[in-house]
Simulated assay, not measured.
Amino acid sequence: MKILQALFFPPEQPGGVSSMVPYIQERFNRMAGWQMELFSLPKRVRGKGTEDLPFRTFDPEQYAGHPIVDRYLQTIRDYLWWTRMRMKGQEQYDLIHAHHPIAALALKHLYPDIPMLATIHSSYERELSLNGKIQPNGPEQAFLVSLYRELEANCDQLITVSEAFRQYMTPFLEQPERVKVIRNGFDQKRFRPISHDTPVPQLVTLCRLVPAKGLDVLLEACARLKQSGKSFVLHIIGDGDIREELEEMAEKLDIYEETIFYGYMLHPEQFMPFFDIFVLPSRAEAFGNVFAEAALCWLALVGTDVGGISEQIEHGKNGLLVPVDDVDALAGALERLLEDPQYRHELARAANERANKTYSLARVIRELKEVYREYGQ
């Protein structure tokens, strides 16, 4: 069977879709009778396409004139343009598996006779809303949530990464019960826990620095810890729109000396095992790959009780969950782990065992093979 894995942008860095799909390709290409290729839109391709994509379930023109919508529609045109130029004469696939709505809609339009599977990894509209880029319930959000039904009408099978996200999509679909859940998996060879003993507990978070990740709540919680006399170092790995704002906030809260801002890091999993506690108080998360990755590095986990995070963490057994935007609860959870290294170790061990069992790449390969066999020609 010959399968095309269609991404949005190239898998240039670990994390998200990029942490899984190239490893899936490697595994499938080693199997007898299976061949898998990757396809994506180069980041340099901008404003090239002129072909409009016909929509089946709604008229996107009613939302035209809004920057997010216009940019999205132009990116679809660019994907169509690039696909026609790059894939000409290479259409002999048994199945296409897309990992972004733009890739799915563009390729299904160009190759309507090839079965199309689409995995929806996250909610663009929730992210934009939480990050203050669009107005809640405004026209941009209406356009973006309409894409779920458009995908349902065009694709042979929708897949998502958590039960929580399937429930989120339910109001926008006609047959939500048909959506399959295949949770992400990871190549465990990338993660090598390292035994270490640090006199001062090391906290780490890894994410894009945007409001949706709740890092303002984390800094407030760390300020409470310092005020109560607790010792720690907070490592913030990642970059984004609010980095300068967060650095200023750390100074005002008098925790700048305890906080290290690293910026973007290409292979954070190589650095992660040297820390003790992974914490990320996200305001929304479809799955939260980084929690599984931190667990594979043998870190204790602290997260918010939302989306895919709450499906990974069983409170008090393999990590701690706190309500969204609750500074007191987050400070309390962190304080408990700072004060009790043995409990911290027990949670980290349990998280590691569960991650190795539940989020293995072998399990993802097995589940995908079943779906591919169902739809492949």
Score class of each variant (00 low, 15 high):
D94V: 02
A104L: 09
P136C: 02
D113K: 13
L41K: 14
L105V: 08
K108C: 11
H97S: 11
P136L: 02
S123G: 07
A64R: 15
D113T: 15
W81P: 03
E127C: 11
G47I: 07
H99A: 06
G89L: 08
H109I: 00
D52A: 14
T57S: 12
L38W: 10
M36F: 12
P115R: 03
I68A: 14
V69W: 00
M31I: 09
V145E: 10
E127V: 12
L151D: 03
S122K: 12
E91Y: 09
G33P: 04
K43E: 15
D113E: 15
P67H: 09
F58K: 08
K133L: 11
L41M: 15
L38G: 13
H99M: 05
Q35R: 15
M85T: 12
S129R: 14
E125N: 06
V45Y: 10
Y111C: 07
D78H: 03
F39V: 15
Q135M: 10
H121A: 12
P101Y: 09
R77N: 01
P60H: 04
Q74W: 02
P67T: 06
Y79V: 04
I102N: 14
E51N: 03
L38N: 15
Q92F: 03
A32W: 07
N131D: 13
K43V: 13
T83C: 05
P60D: 02
E51W: 00
Q90D: 08
T75V: 11
L151E: 04
N154F: 00
V69G: 00
T119F: 08
L53G: 08
D94C: 05
E51G: 00
Y148A: 01
R84Q: 05
C155F: 06
R126K: 14
L95D: 06
Y72N: 07
E51P: 06
K43F: 08
L158V: 05
A104F: 06
P139A: 09
D59H: 08
T75Q: 14
Q135E: 14
W34L: 14
D156Y: 02
M85F: 03
G49P: 06
K108N: 12
G47L: 11
P115E: 02
E51T: 13
M36I: 08
Y93V: 09
L95A: 03
K43Q: 15
I96F: 04
C155W: 00
L110I: 06
H100R: 04
P60I: 03
T75P: 05
D70R: 00
F55Y: 09
R71E: 15
P60R: 02
I159V: 11
H109D: 05
D156A: 06
L53F: 09
A103W: 07
A153T: 00
A103T: 10
A142I: 01
H100M: 01
T160I: 04
P54H: 06
